[in-house]
């Protein structure tokens, strides 16, 4: 089931202004993504862990998420150390593991986890509705924000519709196997999902017009910078400057 497990809470991070969280999540991600030195990415990972602790993220779901996200990273570990040419560390038959390959894989792993952890701590800690309003205040095109909010509003509805269709198929003794019948069933099921979604889209639009929708999404939520936000801006900016110094001034 789709759920927003990290979105609700009363931690210091949850109370921060959503706009600032979005801005700093972007800045932090960009700086970390373009870094290529171990001290920088290690500091980034440390900052991400501090953010995650401050956000009081539930431990087990967080680990599950990180585990899934590391799938492609695992794929890289399986291929890169063997295929990257460089100083050999040890060999197994014709296969040689290079030092450079291991270093690059490790760098990618730390970077990737730092960015994802910080993203969970800063952005996944707000409901998507709030994210949409924050993006609107940050002057992201309104059509795109509408699209995001409507999509978010209906993924749960469509998901339950999907389960309903799947239940109906199961009652008719449908068991997924590797055969044409299974693929045909899934294809028709998905086709039905699209047909229903399109029909519902029509009704939603009519209902919105009936309620006087004029192309503008109103938002009653007022965002304001508070004292805690200022302290946070200071801390995050210092951290980002620290990352920049490590990477480009090479102070270590």
């Amino acid at each position: 089931m789709i759920s927003e497990i990290f979105a609700f809470g009363s931690s210091p991070v949850h109370l921060l202004d959503p706009r600032l969280r979005v801005i700093f999540a972007v800045l932090f991600s960009v700086v970390t993504a373009v870094s290529n030195l171990f001290p920088t990415v290690c500091l980034a990972l440390l900052m991400a862990i501090v953010l995650a602790v401050l956000a009081r993220l539930p431990f087990r779901p967080l680990l599950t998420r990180l585990f899934i996200v590391n799938g492609l990273i695992l794929f890289i570990w399986l291929v890169l150390p063997w295929s990257y040419e460089g100083t050999p560390v040890f060999s197994m038959g014709p296969l040689v593991v290079s030092r450079e390959g291991i270093c690059l894989s490790a760098l990618i792993t730390i970077k990737s986890n730092a960015i994802v952890l910080a993203f969970i701590a800063m952005v996944a800690t707000m409901p998507v509705a709030v994210l949409g309003q924050a993006l609107d205040r940050l002057h992201i095109p309104q059509k795109l924000v509408h699209l995001l909010l409507i999509t978010y509003r209906y993924i749960f509805v469509i998901e339950s519709e999907y389960h309903q269709l799947l239940r109906a198929a199961r009652i008719r003794c449908f068991t997924p196997k590797t055969d044409l019948h299974t693929y045909k069933t899934y294809a028709y099921l998905l086709g039905m999902l699209f047909v229903r979604a399109a029909a519902r889209g029509e009704r939603v639009h009519q209902a919105m017009i009936c309620r006087g929708f004029n192309g503008k999404f109103l938002c009653l939520h007022n965002f304001a910078i508070k004292q805690g936000d200022l302290a946070w801006i200071l801390a995050m900016t210092t951290g980002l400057i620290g990352l920049g110094m490590l990477e480009w001034a090479r102070i270590i």
């Binding site: 789709i2 059509k143 509408h146 699209l147 909010l149 409507i150 999509t151 978010y152 509003r153 209906y154 993924i155 509805v157 469509i158 998901e159 999907y162 997924p176 196997k177 590797t178 299974t182 693929y183 899934y186 998905l190 999902l193 699209f194 229903r196 979604a197 399109a198 519902r200 889209g201 029509e202 939603v204 639009h205 919105m208």
Partner: peptide
């Protein structure tokens, strides 16, 4: 936009479907 949003939601859900 509402129609596109609904279809977007449908594709989002459809991308979670695993086929054997």
């Amino acid at each position: 936009i509402p129609q596109a949003g609904l279809l977007s939601a449908a594709f989002f859900v459809a991308s979670l479907v695993h086929v054997p």
